[in-house]
Write a protein that binds this DNA or RNA. Structure first.
Lengths: 124, 124
DNA sequence: CTCACTGTATTAGTTAACTAATACAATGAT
DNA sequence: ATCATTGTATTAGTTAACTAATACAGTGAG
């Protein structure tokens, strides 16, 4: 299946986010090998150069590393992965609180809104 | 002060969001007149054409309307404004739950994360 | 009437993102 | 040794977003 890509932000940014997410979720386990650039690009329905750029970005941050001719791998450093995950949690939560706050919601009201939407989607 | 603009998404989209937000928050009250395009553009530190595009978008959705030579106004239809606000709340909450879910968080864990970040920022 | 102010339209130019099509070098299996 | 596979680099072309600089038309106050 093609990846969920939004047309209103740079593709390579979204690719970085999605790969980061897959690593945090354990879909690409620590030390594990990723599919080749060309295959990832095909999978995401994206030009290989774009995927290459996304991967290079994640490599810069240390989450991935390359063995020149044998493939690209997830870091074995589980602490780093945990740190990325924590960062994402904080960012998402902070952004959410910020957006709701700007809409005039108080903290208790926010909790209420979250709970009620959870109730609605209990089945998932 | 210049508006909070992110460089990784189209400016006019962000302008639309921010104006929408100001309307929902009552900063631009129902039926009220907005500042002229040129002034809004100056305020946001953006080219007038870009601001014009954003405003045209919001007009298309019905949230704003124009009296050709005397200015641009917020709709008097308070139900529409309430509807927009509800939509935003739902979208933000849904997105947040989705992101946290992908990171492997259960519903109780999400509530916990929100509460704890609220505690941290009680002062705001 | 005149003039400043309103929204709108047009034309041109810049830049970044993305696609496309290759080419190269290193490795490892056969 | 050969050859397919790996990541990487290069060059070119397209498109959308944004800026820039004007020009136009209607309105309302003086």
């Amino acid at each position: 299946m093609p990846w969920e890509l939004d047309s209103d932000r740079p593709i390579y940014t979204q690719l970085m986010e999605q790969i980061e997410l897959k690593v945090c979720a354990g879909l690409y386990p620590p030390g594990g090998r990723l599919p080749p650039v060309r295959e990832l690009a095909r999978e995401a329905a994206v030009n290989p150069n774009t995927m290459q750029r996304a991967l290079a970005g994640l490599e810069e941050s240390g989450l991935l590393y390359t063995r020149r001719t044998s493939g690209r791998f997830v870091t074995e450093n589980q602490d780093m992965i945990r740190a990325v995950k924590s960062r994402l949690v904080r960012e998402h939560t902070r952004d959410f609180l910020n957006k709701m706050g700007r809409l005039g919601f108080t903290h208790p009201e926010i909790l209420e809104a979250v709970s009620s939407l959870m109730e609605e989607n209990k089945n998932e």
